[in-house]
Nucleic acid binder design. Structure first.
Lengths: 348, 348
DNA sequence: GTCCCTTAGGGAAACGGTTCCACATTCCGT
DNA sequence: ACGGAATGTGGAACCGTTTCCCTAAGGGAC
């Protein structure tokens, strides 16, 4: 395997010059650079990133911590991140993080603490202070996208506002018996995505001076997936007597499950049941789901742009629409209410 | 940042001994090992994988090339791979590969050719000879999972047999007007997943001495997604006159789309239309879809086990159920027909 | 004519590990 | 008692880059 010394010898220059010619740093005469490049191409030289990392300390590699890859939101974010990273010349190392347990500790202590990544993007996960500290101690940037990381910049939609917006949409349509299918853990973790959406719902209901419908509790929790929504909705809609006329689902996947459950129960939609979700899932249009859209692919792109800025990468092709806000503040991301056929005026 | 020299000094040994103690290679007295470990822990020493890679040539990192992350099959595979790799102490570098174009070349020439990965797992993608050669030239193992890579070991279900099995299920139920919603590109690339499934369908039909139903062509092609299946099925089922009584969809996602289309068109299912898919999608049970299941998470695990063997990793916790077959042969993976409520006897 | 800045390029020292080789000691079989 | 194998440790080379420091030539300003 040819090394830079071979290239240098072939081009008749020193290793130092060859390095400068190939990396583009420092002074090299045009003609010399061409000679070096030709020599490199001729023997199929490929630089060892390990050797370069060893001396520069930079790895051109970003770690992405993510709890799922096969949920719509996470898949989209991951794709957006990957695309941006690739075009910035960075690698992406993936860490699929379980909610807790030794597996999770291992990711931080064994993998992320090592020097393989220049920065970390944590997607949809709530990090502990210790976990953030593992990264920042090595003075590596870390940024949270759609989750929380104490002391790190946060990039997320305004979940509370999005939930209020969805709920208000139902209220404006005249619904008074509105139930919320919350994400699992919405009660336990108030600052989590699920918790904030639940809070937004309750707040909007409170402003309208209405009590949440359905369930012993004020909301029913569901796994953030289609089967999760299905199971929860069956439970919610099972008693024909006091059935709600509208459901605000914490995610589109929950909403799809609820729609499926309503179908199964023979409840006509939207005439007797309106449903609204949050996400802007790929399938929402097809199923006619009214939803508060967010744009995870774009969010991934923005996260990468931000990280690049923190790494001091020059003004590359990636522009950061986030502007000049401080790096420890929270940047609310774009959302938009899209009304489709799953919601309509309250019956009678 | 403490280096191994600091650990050695603190423990009163040489760098060589410290290295041996920490990596577990070579002879080290138990008591010495303990001293070194204590010293390392005390100053928070973390080994630099870059330095280690530089000298050993191994990176403890596997590259995964994948065309999508947000399609069910790919997401599941990716999760399976990640989990296995992590428990083997390996990192996973993700390359989201477009079907073609400069982006794709860049992945191979710029990223994979560099020395950052010890091996490559290509998921659901058909590699060219040149692409495989880029990897093998550096004598790195490469393995194809659910796709093809000329000259590399291949791990996949028997797509043709799976398609025949699904089709035969419909035939046994008495259907004679059976349509196939094929994956896009099934005609162009005969050896691709879509092409093989199409071939399996046509073969089963041929054996039964039946002609495929619907469409000008013998099959209709659809994007391998729910909306893709929806659009194709609308087209297929649009003409009430010569409507097929059964559909074999090339994937469960296509099948879901077809079910949705049938619903929209008011076609009662399964009485007037049976649908069978391939995949064993997470949602199949909920939608009552009859399907030929495959197990992508497990497939990912097997792929990793195989790669570990090729890398000469000792008999670790990962066992390879594949046995002792040659590394350039094709190993068919498990599938199973699961009959649910989406298929029933042909009408009348 | 001197001085300094810019451009160009070479020698050698890092970076942080692993491993080869040499040397010393202990253990065991005969 | 002795030779050889097994065990334990240190010194030093090495992996393949980047970068610091030095030398040197050319050119413009004074």
């Amino acid at each position: 395997m040819p090394a830079i010394g071979d290239v240098a010898r072939l081009a008749g220059v020193s290793k130092a010059t060859a390095s400068r010619a190939l990396t583009g740093r420092g002074y090299v005469a045009d003609e010399t650079r061409r000679r070096v490049e030709a020599a490199a191409a001729r023997i199929g030289y490929i630089a060892s990133p390990d050797a370069a990392s060893l001396v520069t300390g930079r790895t051109k590699n970003v770690g992405v911590v993510i709890p799922f890859v096969n949920r719509w939101f996470f898949g989209e974010v991951l794709e957006g991140i990957e695309r941006s990273l690739l075009s910035a010349g960075y690698d992406l190392t993936l860490y699929n993080l379980a909610q807790s347990g030794p597996h999770r500790d291992r990711v931080f202590d064994f993998f992320l603490a090592r020097k393989r990544v220049d920065a970390v993007i944590a997607v949809g996960v709530d990090l502990t202070e210790r976990e953030v500290e593992v990264i920042t101690r090595r003075s590596k940037p870390i940024i949270a996208l759609g989750g929380t990381a104490p002391g790190a910049p946060r990039l997320a939609i305004d979940d509370r506002a999005a939930a209020s917006l969805a709920t208000e949409h139902l209220l404006k349509l005249g619904h008074v018996r509105i139930a919320h299918l919350a994400g699992a853990g919405s009660g336990a973790a108030a600052r989590s995505v699920q918790g904030l959406r639940r809070a937004g719902f309750l707040q909007a209901m409170d402003v309208a001076e209405l009590a949440p419908a359905g369930g012993i509790d004020d909301v029913i929790e569901a796994e953030m997936s289609l089967p999760g929504g299905y199971a929860a909705a069956l439970q919610l809609l099972g008693h024909p007597g006091d059935r709600p006329t509208a459901i605000f689902a914490a995610s589109d996947e929950i909403a799809f499950g609820a729609m499926r459950a309503a179908e199964r129960l023979g409840i006509p939609m939207p005439t007797e049941l309106s449903i609204v979700g949050i996400d802007g899932h790929e399938y929402a249009e097809l199923f006619g789901l009214t939803t508060v859209e967010q744009y995870p692919g774009e969010q991934g792109r923005i996260a990468v742009a931000r990280v690049m800025r923190m790494l001091g990468e020059g003004p590359s092709a990636l522009e950061d629409p986030g502007g000049a806000e401080s790096d420890v503040e929270w940047t609310p991301l774009a959302t938009r209410l899209v009304v489709r056929s799953s919601t309509t005026a309250a019956p009678r």
